[in-house]
């Protein structure tokens, strides 16, 4: 009997500039035998935050792509993604590795500056933003 695929919560920015990387993550994870889970694919019956918590609760892994951490067009920084990273880190910490967290960044060592509380954890992984 085939083992059910482990699921991966994708914490990524949902904007047009990120479409190619979103597609790459989803296709890549399926091809590696995982089940990607994203908030946009879940009915928003219980509210967005509860949906995210539920997804993190039921996924073995999460990917947090922090390669786009610049302020939004309105000039106001968006904190949704760091918030979701915090939720995932808490679950990882309190469940003795039932949930593993992977952080992808565009530039090496930038995360040590943007999110210095993460210093001392396993290093994040760089994923270059490429088309194709």
């Amino acid at each position: 009997m085939e083992k059910p695929a482990e699921s991966v919560f994708l914490n990524i920015p949902y904007d047009r500039d990120f479409e190619s990387l979103y597609l790459a993550y989803v296709v890549g994870l399926v091809r590696l035998g995982f089940e990607p889970r994203v908030t946009v694919a879940v009915p928003n019956d219980i509210g967005r935050l509860d949906t995210i918590i539920d997804l993190i609760q039921h996924c073995e892994y999460s990917i947090h792509d922090l390669s786009r951490i610049q302020p939004s067009a309105s000039g106001i920084p968006r904190f949704n993604m760091p918030l979701e990273l915090g939720l995932a880190l808490y679950r990882s910490r309190t469940t003795t590795k039932e949930h593993r967290v992977y952080i992808f960044e565009q530039e090496n060592y930038r995360i040590q500056q943007s999110t210095s509380d993460l210093n001392g954890l396993d290093r994040g992984f760089t994923m270059e933003r490429r088309r194709g």
Partner: peptide, 23 residues
């Protein structure tokens, strides 16, 4: 990079296969 992190199955797709599927 994604493959490096998440490679679990011996029969998992290669990086070129993943890129071909992506395209």
């Amino acid at each position: 990079q994604l493959r490096n992190v998440f490679l679990r199955e011996s029969e998992a797709s290669t990086a070129p296969q993943m890129m071909a599927a992506y395209r």
